[in-house]
Amino acid sequence: MNRIRATVNRIDYNGNLHRLVLSAGSQSFTVITLELGDEYTVGALVDIRFKPAHVALAKNITGEISIANRLDATVLELHKGKILVEMLLQGAGGKFYALTTTEAVERMRIVPGDAVVALLKASDLYLSKTDEA
């Protein structure tokens, strides 16, 4: 499970639906979630967490896309299976894994050192409290 430490910058809500804007280094994140515990306040340090399978990758992306989170990242490692590839990426907010199909990696000719954009839907991210202050 990917974990990126981030600071909560803004919280909007409508009923029990919340939208949070966070930052990790120079990277901004948007997270959509239902009810939010009292400990998630503006200024709080939290972990943004997401499954590697929820990360989509793009190269040379142009045009409009609705996905809220775009992370500029560099490919560090590829662990290839016959069907899936687990990829380790370095973004501005930290390292994270992406899981994608081997077919996509070959089609996009992704190799270590490549610059890619990782795309993450705001509703696929969740938050957990960090133990460190």
Partner: peptide
């Protein structure tokens, strides 16, 4: 569940761990 913002969380017991392809 309060440790995270996940709302769909259940306690369980791991029976088996398997490696499949890259996962």
């Amino acid at each position: 569940e309060h440790a995270t913002t996940q709302k769909f969380a259940f306690r369980g017991e791991v029976l088996e761990l398997r490696a499949v392809d890259a996962v």
